[in-house]
């Protein structure tokens, strides 16, 4: 099946290794990635929306128009992009005054939002259009005995009436995906705590990040399994910042789910970009008999 790739900003610019993992792991699942020129930032659901709500909605609508012109449903690889595009799609489909307002602006560039496509995060695309069986079939090297602490993050699941991905209080989708590659999903106490990235404060984001990391540490895992680059940045850069500021070293390696899928599909750590990580999942490499350069 064809799926229209919406890369966003954070992954292609700051964490291109995640894009590598996505591009390598989807074809074995039977997904043909379609690239399209012209997409802008989704745009950013936190600070850009805080600055200009109407502009946020309109820029999102322009991206949706490009997908409508291509006639293919969008898949996203970042929770922020998923949030913005799903929410905008929902508002524009269900609120005619908003759609009219946005379309007045889009007319300036010869576009019109029509509400013809769906937006799905990559994990939802896999669950709905590919099936977990296909994921299991693609595995060549099950990650046996690998303990992965799940962190869903906020914007894949909430607001749940718009996202419609899973029950935000009892989500299953990542558990199932982790099990499908032979690893063990580990539930830790602070699994629902926000990473704190959006708070503007010198200490507050680090306080939230640290609370999650301590909880993960307590659960004695090989790595965290994430699907959001913003969460990743909190648990990667944030973790190093905490170590520098307070001396507390936790050594909890955050890993993007599709890097784990790649390892299970037989790719090397370097082939899924794990050599670029500052906090490497060394015990995971050991368990699957792989080193990293």
């Amino acid at each position: 099946m064809k799926a229209l790739f919406f890369p966003g900003c954070l992954i292609p610019i700051k964490y291109p290794q995640m894009e590598v993992a996505v591009r390598r792991t989807l074809p074995p699942l039977g997904i043909e990635i379609v690239d399209l020129e012209g997409f802008s930032c989704c745009p950013d659901p936190i600070f850009f929306q805080a600055a200009d709500k109407v502009g946020w909605l309109t820029m999102a609508a322009r991206n949706l128009c490009l997908a409508e012109e291509a006639g293919i449903d969008i898949f996203t690889i970042c929770s922020g992009c998923t949030g913005t595009l799903s929410e905008a799609n929902h508002i524009l489909k269900h609120e005619p005054p908003m759609r009219d307002m946005v379309n007045r602006r889009l007319k300036r560039i010869g576009k019109e939002y029509r509400g013809e496509i769906e937006v799905r995060h990559i994990v939802t695309l896999i669950r709905e259009k590919v099936g977990l069986e296909r994921v299991r079939e693609s595995v060549k090297r099950p990650l046996e005995g690998v303990r992965v602490a799940l962190h869903y993050g906020c914007h894949l699941l909430k607001p749940s009436d718009i996202m419609r991905v899973d029950d935000p209080d009892e989500p299953q989708i990542l558990h199932q995906l982790i099990e499908a590659i032979g690893a063990q999903p580990i539930v830790h106490d602070e699994r629902f705590l926000c990473c704190g990235k959006a708070c503007i404060d010198p200490d507050l984001p680090l306080e939230m990040t640290r609370t999650v990391l301590r909880s993960v540490k307590e659960a004695d895992v090989d790595c965290m399994g994430l699907i959001c680059p913003t969460c990743f940045s909190s648990f990667d850069t944030g973790q190093l910042l905490i170590a520098r500021k307070t001396g507390e070293k936790m050594d909890v390696p955050p890993v993007y789910y599709f890097q784990l899928l790649g390892l299970a599909q037989g790719l090397t750590p370097a082939e899924v970009g794990l050599n670029r990580h500052r906090i490497k999942p060394l015990s995971l490499f050991e368990k699957i008999g792989q080193g990293v350069t």
Binding site: I13, R108, I109
Partner: peptide, 24 residues
Amino acid sequence: RERLGLPPLPPIDMAEIQAILKPD
């Protein structure tokens, strides 16, 4: 990106973005 085997970042039509961000 090239070293990682990724395609270059595609260009964005900034005239379009600026046109739609201007309030009515």
